[in-house]
Design a binder for these strands. Structure first.
Lengths: 349, 349
DNA sequence: GTTTGGCACTCATATCTATAGTGTGCTAAC
DNA sequence: GTTAGCACACTATAGATATGAGTGCCAAAC
């Protein structure tokens, strides 16, 4: 890996060369040689001089050559240095923002919002868009309904503050009368309405333990039912993915086997959720270049994320996935703005 | 295309050769030559004789050679002849069926059932599984609920006989009181409960036209709301796809661009639904080989479908998608059995 | 008339070779 | 510190050549 990139060896001129080199490489995917770099840089230096500079950069581990006589390409450290210190972000123009705002803000439930945000991300970046659904701690319990389907089957509908509906069919041992069910749902709604799902779940558990004996059988069952719904698979979180197929267009990602692994891991979700969870705490845009994510299917891919919030509290994370050689200047602002727009769209509830 | 495949030229021996050739080609994907075919066929014939037979088969348009000096590969007509007359279906063993039955039958709502059937298909065939969700005509309206979210936003929940829940947030111009909403949902539930969604939709439309003037404002709105939900995107039908990435493993399907188109068309859904619709009427397993589907992304792919039913009436279609060179002997029974199992699982409701 | 062996021919694939082009590293001069 | 020049390394490309699989056809055998 060489020495620390921010080494004395890498002076301002070298940094500028790195910037030009990376931008050039991002543009057309070819290793760039000293000749082209000398021309591109605009500085009045001969290729030979540039070669010395490039040699320094290679020494510092920021660039590398695929083989003896090709130009140089950025290494992961090179990209890292670039996104940390050298990017010149290209802000979206107002019309783009407006269009996007419109696209996202066509209100309704948060699920639809999230889904549209994801589409917006993939459309704008032409890569894969990724939006985590709001974490449960942020979602308040509003109402529960029990709908009898047959003697032993009950449909439980859980409505949350964001207009989201979760439902599940449950098999019960004994039969409940209509009035019993109504009684149960009134109890739950009045006792837990307005609390967030996590605390509701905890409260239910506690209550069930402490009052197991003397509690009305129906109530106990109702709580159990509600508990079942809350134990939903989604409890670990979930995300919406768009534009997965966009990744199939990139020449950089032409290895079918690797791409298959990637897609499988998108479908698997678990590991990726784990990865996204990590980004919740961060302040703004966060970037994982290649192996930095420590998640094998993302090798030679880059993940750009940003957290979004509802009413000032962190609610989730969104981002895009694309080849390491992506247009960071453009992508970073897009992710940033999308997160902000989504936060705004989720606010007025 | 040559003459009609069932030509005089293609006698019994030739058919047998075709069968052996196709099974061999399916096994290892290489064009098969006269030499190997002579050995494989088991008949005591020299390669030279086989060459004559193959020449006849080529004449009939059932096989072709990629170039002058390769073996022969089946054409679409060849596969067609094979699946129509030559397949020796390899029935699943009891344990497989049982395992599958178990996997599918873990009751609950039809959506989950459909989803598990799709997974089963893709797992067993190692290709992509496809299950259309039951058509609306087969689904009965059970209950509707209006949940006020804010002054102008109402959550509409529609419960159907199969335990399926559709929901949608609706913006209304004016505010409704809680009791008005309850009144509306009672009206709808008692008037339309037990009818299928299509007839409910039609009935609502008619009612709204004939009684527009003298109808209670709330009822009108309620009907409009219900109508909105019924006009759901899903009204055209929907399907669940599994194991899409399985298709990325096949050497036959290594063209990334084509695969991208295929995946995009899976996401698009419309055209594929159209295709599946066509298979509803058929009796048993139906097969579309390559261009037979007349749907471009399916060129050099094969779609094997079978309709399934609920309570004796056709309800939907399921199937698998894979390379034309698939193991028909195995796949056809799998699709057949899955359809039957799904029909059984949907029955007891 | 069906089957077979023999032989010439075709074409894809692999291997080698030559060549051109690109870009580097090093050294010596400015 | 910068530049020019030169030898060297490596890739990519094309052409030449060989190899091998498989066909088509014909004449002889069954």
């Amino acid at each position: 890996m060489g020495r620390d990139p921010v080494d004395i060896a890498v002076n301002e001129r070298a940094q500028y060369c790195l910037k030009v080199l990376i931008e050039r490489y991002i543009r057309d995917g070819q290793p760039v040689g000293s000749r082209t770099l000398a021309r591109d840089s605009g500085m009045k230096l001969s290729p030979a001089t540039i070669r010395n500079v490039m040699s320094d950069l290679e020494e510092a581990g920021l660039i590398a050559s695929p083989h003896t006589s090709a130009g140089r390409v950025p290494t992961v450290s090179g990209y890292r240095f670039f996104v940390d210190f050298l990017v010149s972000l290209r802000p979206l123009d107002k019309s783009e923002v407006q269009q996007m705002q419109q696209q996202i803000a066509v209100g309704s439930d948060s699920r639809a919002l999230v889904s549209r945000a994801s589409s917006a991300l993939s459309d704008l970046t032409r890569m894969a868009g990724l939006v985590m659904v709001p974490r449960r701690e942020q979602v308040l319990f509003r109402q529960i309904e029990f709908v009898p389907l047959s003697d032993s089957r009950i449909l439980v509908i859980l409505v949350t503050s964001d207009g989201e509906v979760q439902n599940r069919v449950i098999e019960t041992a004994k039969r409940f009368s209509e009035s019993q069910l109504i009684q149960a749902q009134n109890f739950l709604t009045s006792n837990y309405g307005g609390r967030d799902l996590e605390s509701m779940r905890a409260g239910l558990l506690k209550e069930m333990q402490s009052t197991r004996k003397r509690m009305d059988e129906v109530m106990a069952q109702a709580m159990e039912l509600a508990g079942l719904v809350l134990n939903n698979e989604k409890s670990e979180g979930d995300f919406v993915l768009s534009g997965q197929t966009n990744l199939m267009g990139f020449h950089d990602l032409s290895d079918m086997t690797l791409l298959k692994h990637l897609f499988d891991s998108f479908a698997e979700k678990r590991e990726i959720l784990h990865l996204l969870d990590h980004c919740m705490d961060a302040e703004g845009v966060q970037i994982f270049i290649g192996e930095e994510s420590h998640y094998e299917p993302f090798d030679n891919l880059t993940l750009v994320t940003a957290p979004y919030e509802t009413d000032g509290r962190a609610a989730g994370v969104l981002g895009v996935v694309g080849p390491t050689r992506m247009d960071y200047n453009k992508v970073i602002p897009i992710v940033d703005v999308t997160a902000k727009l989504l936060s705004m769209a989720l606010k007025r509830k």
